[in-house]
């Protein structure tokens, strides 16, 4: 049966009815909270849906995918030229296409993060104030160079060839790393990812903590969203900043109490199901032929990327 995300889950919560009027309804902290929480729940849901489909990369064992992710992310971090990064990017794009993921949605997210964390943050480093080199685009001409403590500002300020190359290199590296992470994430259920970490000798007790925590993040996120919506639906006037802060502090404290109560309940449930001090993750399957073939192919391609 094909899963589809219900449309209502893809819609952002409406804020039309809360456009500040003369009354000065200031509830942006509630709106932002709801958007933030809705994004968390939506991301989890979309990931679960795309990861549980039956396409090329989804069929491969999670252990192979984890090793693939680590191997390729390390390759991306080791490469020192743009053409290699472009080739790796193209390879990930082909894998995304073969796995029938929604390319537009995945790359929209990748490009957004790469633009902010790769391009925008690194852009000022293209100036000759930071990276010395041949100026290819002069931007400002000062009457004389300035010196302040350990900082030097040259007479002519502009983008250097070396600086621009550095920015493009960093952006492509950030983009490839993000594309790889999202690709594996969108093709592997989170619980499988965690189980697969066993190949890296991560202790079972630590994996159990991460798995439990992940499940309860979504349960609590829904609870907090309900609290925000309940508050929003009861508001008829202005909320002062101080009142808003008190409300948030109260909700956070309530969440803390709830999480502590849940801890007791989960512990009793674990005891009731025969839990002992010895935690073991079961259900690890044997690798199939296609997993071995995929591993070999990814390894050979990875070594080729390292070599070029």
């Amino acid at each position: 049966m094909k899963n589809k995300v219900p449309l209502f889950l893809l819609e952002r919560p409406s804020s039309d009815s809360f456009i500040p009027g003369k009354g000065g309804l200031k509830i942006s902290f509630i709106e932002k909270g709801i958007h933030h929480l809705a994004d968390v729940i939506k991301t989890g849901y979309i990931q679960w849906e795309t990861a549980s489909s039956d396409n090329f990369f989804q069929k491969i064992d999670a252990r192979v995918k984890i090793l693939f992710l680590l191997f390729y992310i390390i390759i991306v971090s080791l490469k020192k030229n743009i053409p290699s990064e472009v080739l790796i990017g193209a390879f990930v794009f082909v894998l995304t296409f073969l796995s029938r993921l929604e390319i537009f949605n995945l790359y929209k997210r990748v490009l957004f993060f790469a633009f902010i964390f790769g391009f925008l943050i690194a852009l000022p480093s293209a100036l000759n104030v930071i990276t010395k080199g041949e100026i290819i685009l002069p931007l400002l001409h000062l009457s004389k160079p300035y010196r302040f403590w350990i900082y030097q500002i040259p007479e002519e300020i502009g983008l250097t060839r070396e600086g621009v190359y550095g920015v493009l290199m960093l952006t492509s590296r950030v983009m490839n790393s993000l594309a790889l992470s999202f690709f594996v994430l969108y093709t592997t259920p989170f619980t499988e990812i965690i189980k697969a970490l066993k190949v890296l000798k991560v202790p079972d007790s630590f994996l159990m903590i991460v798995t439990l925590s992940y499940k309860y993040v979504f349960i609590f996120a829904k609870t907090i969203e309900d609290m925000h919506l309940a508050m929003k639906s009861r508001l008829a006037g202005k909320v002062s900043n101080a009142e808003g802060r008190r409300w948030i502090a109260g909700r956070l404290a309530l969440m803390f109490k709830k999480s502590q109560q849940r801890c007791e309940e989960i512990f009793k449930a674990m005891l009731g199901r025969g839990f002992s001090n010895n935690i073991k993750f079961y259900g690890v399957k044997k690798l199939q032929t296609r997993d071995w073939v995929a591993s070999a192919v990814f390894f050979i391609v990875g070594v080729l990327f390292l070599w070029i």
Partner: peptide, 21 residues
């Protein structure tokens, strides 16, 4: 310690979900 740490981690995650005026 397992459920205690799991719930604490979930709470740590959720703190960042709250926008404070």
């Amino acid at each position: 310690h397992i459920p205690y740490l799991a719930m604490s981690a979930a709470f740590s995650f959720l703190i960042m979900m709250f926008n404070v005026p």
